[in-house]
Amino acid sequence: MKLTLKIWRQKNSADTGGFVTYPIDGISKDMSFLEMMDVLNEELTEKNQDPVHFDHDCREGICGTCSLYIDGKPHGPLQTTTCQLHMRSFSDGDTITIEPWRAKAFPVLKDLVVDRSSFDRIIQAGGYVSVNTGGVPDANEIPIPKTMADLAMDAAQCIGCGACVAACKNASAMLFTSAKVSQLALLPQGQIERKTRAEKMVAQMDAEGFGACTNTGACEAECPKGISLTNIARMNREYFSAVMSSENM
């Protein structure tokens, strides 16, 4: 396949950045999207041009590191991660536009690499059960109905990629935050800190500069792990019942 790539290049966070167009040839349908980028980078290196920087690691759709905004969609045309996207989703002669995630809380570091440490800080605000190592009960002393465990697992599958934020016109992090809040709200282990957790995580989310949720559902539509909007509804319930009887006064 012969393609034209329009790629966002930006030297560092201070640079204004802009698109650069690269023609590329000899791409096979079996290549993954990132392998196509590897080919481009080998060619650029050959010509003594700085390779395009992008984040990636597992290339299996699980680490959440890859993060390209392809033709106006986070992770491209399929509901999957960029690393699991293959060139068979494109046709010979296509022009493909590649940009970084765009959100105030995800500043660009270089080219297509953004800083998502705001997500870590949301988790640090309360995305855990406060137990120390050792001294916990036997695992089977906490029976959990299978349906609950399955629902919790559905939410826990979030890979922290940030596509939900990139897809949202307000750059809201509600889907990401609600996935963690839901997982722990559904499980008996999470009950003790249920109220403070929702409050603290939402407060951190706001402090990081993520936008408000206006329920457009764009996040769910682009989430590679199928995290459902019902998590946002659940978090809203958690949050409102928490602020009504706040322990964080």
Partner: peptide, 11 residues
Amino acid sequence: DQCVAQGVPFA
């Protein structure tokens, strides 16, 4: 035991 206490959703 530790992982379950943390809320790891095992099958």
